[in-house]
Design a protein around this nucleic acid. Structure first.
Lengths: 239, 239
DNA sequence: ACTCAATGGATCGTCGGCAGACCATTGAGT
DNA sequence: ACTCAATGGTCTGCCGACGATCCATTGAGT
């Protein structure tokens, strides 16, 4: 008996407390570019309901993010909690240290991400997209191409998330977002080279084109190639 | 703005309470065949630690499963909680009713499952498998082929889980297990035809063979075909 | 016949998170 | 200048989950 199945089924039912989870989610929204700098988060009462968390807990999470410099709250009607224009710089932990901490987790995260994102690309290509969805994809693609170095990661994440969205599968979208967040710390640790960005943009274009043409095999292949590029880069910097 | 990304990121941080979650996990272990009838669950103290749940909560969950007829507990050294030889028959809820309740969730679950399991098959084929892993796979394959109608679903799940296991990615394994569970109720609602089983067994063999040969494309293709068969079957019965 | 380690069974105090109600502030609309 | 709806900010009582501790039972080993 290999007994790894046990580990999968008997894994912890919950990771951390609601407070920590909530902080993580809000960070996700900011770092993945779901809520852009200057934009407003949903109202506390609304957001608490959607996150299935008490308002008290949500407020504690927001407070933490305020202290960390991510958001600011304003009272009154037309008030709310807004994402700061100037986001805190990610702490550039030395790559190797992160890699050590992650350990086998790196391979794990990359494997999961590969399965999810290639699957998403294929599924997206298989769908009949609405005009709004096509616009959304192309908008994200253009934003990413036009992004400067400091914003690149966020728009890149947003684009990948957009691809997952147009599969029409909420679960798949969520899973992609989570997988992406797991790798975010790693990605912050490696330098962004403009050569890589150029290459990345070309691949993005190929992926989107294949999706819009409905070519499932091509979409999958293009995404697969794109991801393996990142994976190789990560391996290179972390070994 | 398509605004579906919000739904993905601001989804509930937790589903249900620890008690319900724990019950779900234990059912998963039983229904996916991780713990076979007659076998023993891990000791309460051990299991509670692994699930990251208090022993009290775990015991309440076990109590619920005892009343439902899934397990029985025995005291003393060499005692423990054992899975019953005769499992309760799944309540054959009319398929259409389930389909209505699930709604779009069916497509969602099928999409996610497709991405995960085809990805797992490909990843498994890409790995250099140990002798133990190969044995495990072939054992699961043989068990499934030999299973009678009442046991088939469980061994089938076990085989698919085994494929995910040999990717070496715990996250992927967990995700596959969860996706499978989401579809379990549906699968219970459609009749098992021996013709379908024969077909299924042939496909299983093709998948395993491709994995053992290290042929990634073939493994993916075989899995994809296998899954689409199930998907078609489900669609047929639920429409 | 006895021992004892491993297991399930039971109880109690603590605390984090929750629901609900209420207060304070803001600014567009009138 | 006033109104008021929507928002963030605060407080209180309650409950579920937790950790810890002790009890009861069993049967292989001696």
């Amino acid at each position: 008996m290999v007994a790894q199945a046990d580990d999968a089924v008997f894994r912890p039912v919950r990771t951390g407390n609601p407070f920590e989870e909530t902080v993580e989610r809000l960070l996700q929204a900011i770092k993945l570019g779901v809520v852009a700098p200057g934009e407003r988060l949903p109202a506390e009462r609304d957001l608490a309901t959607r996150l299935n968390v008490s308002r008290v807990t949500l407020r504690e999470a927001i407070h933490a993010l305020t202290e960390a410099g991510y958001v600011e709250s304003r009272r009154g009607r037309y008030g709310g909690t807004f994402v700061n224009e100037q986001l805190p710089k990610p702490r550039r932990t030395p790559a190797r240290r992160i890699a050590r901490e992650l350990g086998d987790g790196l391979e794990d995260a990359l494997t999961l991400r590969g399965a999810l994102e290639t699957g998403a690309a294929e599924a997206a290509a298989a769908r009949e997209l609405s005009v709004a969805e096509i616009d959304h994809l192309q908008r994200c693609l253009a934003d990413t191409s036009a992004a400067n170095l400091t914003d690149y990661r966020r728009f890149d994440s947003r684009l990948h998330l957009a691809i997952a969205e147009v599969t029409g599968s909420p679960s798949l979208t969520s899973a992609v977002a989570d997988a992406r967040m797991r790798l975010n710390e790693l990605l912050d640790a490696i330098p962004l080279l403009s050569r890589n960005i150029t290459h990345s943009n070309e691949q993005h274009e190929a992926i989107i084109q294949a999706i819009l043409e409905g070519d499932q095999a091509a979409a999958r292949a293009a995404m697969s190639e794109h991801l393996s590029g990142t994976a190789t880069l990560l391996h290179g910097f972390l070994t």
